[in-house]
């Protein structure tokens, strides 16, 4: 436990000195008051009261319900929440990778390999830190609006963010482990991020293509949409929230052993140093 907490403290300290928290503060300040969720509802169904209350309270999270007959809203409006969601989920993907390359460049990763720390703690500390930061960041983005959500929705947001953040951090670390430095990683890494952004183009679509389910951002996006506009409500006959959580859980179950395998082969047991 001592080694684990030491690892988390060290990772957080380095990220603080990399001005991560300043960057997040700027993003938070810039996003203040701009989070606007637009959803359609079936005219035969009653719109839930809670989102309306949020809207009336003038809080930062505004949820606007449009009848199904209304024309599609402007793209920028539809993407506001989606962008928020993606920033939260890619936190560990981006900064975890940057941290890894920094450790490779400084040689501190090599030094760690000759310590009793071990691979499991190294991976665990990174996932714990970035998952925790993702959850904290998600609530910071929601701001005071989070206070008006019920406990189940808050827990749902925390769970989805934790699962999505963990998945993306693990994916980011697994990809970064295969490259020597940030320059080599840049094109493939950004490529993965671009692919992960594809769901944004289909946010709110009534018949999204099936292949979207191969992209980690898609189920998280669906889950957030449901949680913010009424817990568990599947818009337009979408997949139930519980299944979205199961999807994220299953993806983590696949990703974590893959990460452990890649890290063991590429970092902890590399053939040449």
């Amino acid at each position: 436990m001592k080694a684990f907490s030491s690892l988390i403290r060290q990772e957080a300290l380095i990220m603080a000195r990399n001005h991560l928290f300043m960057v997040l503060a700027i993003v938070l300040a810039a996003s203040a008051g701009s989070i606007h969720l637009v959803r359609w509802y079936d005219a035969s169904r009653t719109a839930p009261e809670r989102p309306a209350m949020l809207q009336a309270g003038g809080h930062r999270l505004a949820v606007e319900y449009l009848p199904a007959s209304v024309a599609e809203p402007p793209l920028a409006e539809r993407m506001a929440v989606a962008l928020m969601v993606c920033e939260v989920l890619i936190l560990g993907f981006l900064f975890g990778s940057v941290g890894l390359f920094q450790e490779k460049e400084e040689g501190s990763l090599r030094a760690y390999r000759l310590s009793p720390g071990g691979q499991a703690r190294w991976i665990g500390a990174k996932l714990t830190l970035w998952t925790g930061l993702s959850v904290a960041y998600a609530f910071a983005l929601l701001g005071t609006a989070a206070l008006r959500l019920d406990g189940a929705s808050l827990a749902g947001i925390a769970l989805v963010t934790a699962l999505g953040g963990c998945l993306m951090t693990a994916l980011g670390l697994a990809i970064s482990a295969c490259f020597q430095n940030l320059s080599q990683w840049f094109i493939p890494g950004v490529g993965v991020l671009l692919v992960n952004m594809l769901p944004l183009a289909f946010q709110g679509a009534t018949n999204p293509p099936v292949w979207l389910w191969l992209i980690p951002g898609w189920p998280a996006l669906q889950a957030y949409g449901q949680l913010l506009s009424g817990a568990g409500q599947a818009a337009g006959g979408g997949v139930a929230l519980s299944w979205l959580v199961v999807w994220l859980l299953a993806a983590n179950c696949l990703m974590l052993p893959t990460l452990a395998w890649v890290v063991r082969r590429r970092i902890f047991k590399e053939a040449r140093s």
Binding site: A3, S6, Q10, I14, Q102, S108, A111
Partner: peptide, 22 residues
């Protein structure tokens, strides 16, 4: 070849490694 955390102070470097040992 030095393999230290450049962003950390000397004391922080040593405390981090001290934390890894049982």
């Amino acid at each position: 070849h030095p393999n230290l955390f450049g962003k950390l102070t000397a004391l922080e470097n040593l405390r981090f490694y001290a934390g890894l040992f049982a």
